[in-house]
Amino acid sequence: MNITVNWGLLAPILAIQLILMVTALTSLYKADATRGPKWMWVLIIVFGQILGPIIYFVVGRNDRS
């Protein structure tokens, strides 16, 4: 019962996800203010799979100040 996984194929996908996550976390770390508490965004970014970082970038960033 095991799917033969070709890691050579999946590694880039995981890498892209990682880049997205790290970018979102960097942005969050540098941001002066976000909509909602920062720890909440950390959870969303880390556990939200692909959607987490996207949601953060669209909704969480507060560019006005």
């Binding site: 979102a24 942005s27 970038f57 560019d63």
Partner: peptide, 9 residues
């Protein structure tokens, strides 16, 4: 605003 990274990704 990191758009150059996240949108293409």
């Amino acid at each position: 605003s990191y758009k150059w990274i996240w949108v293409p990704m």
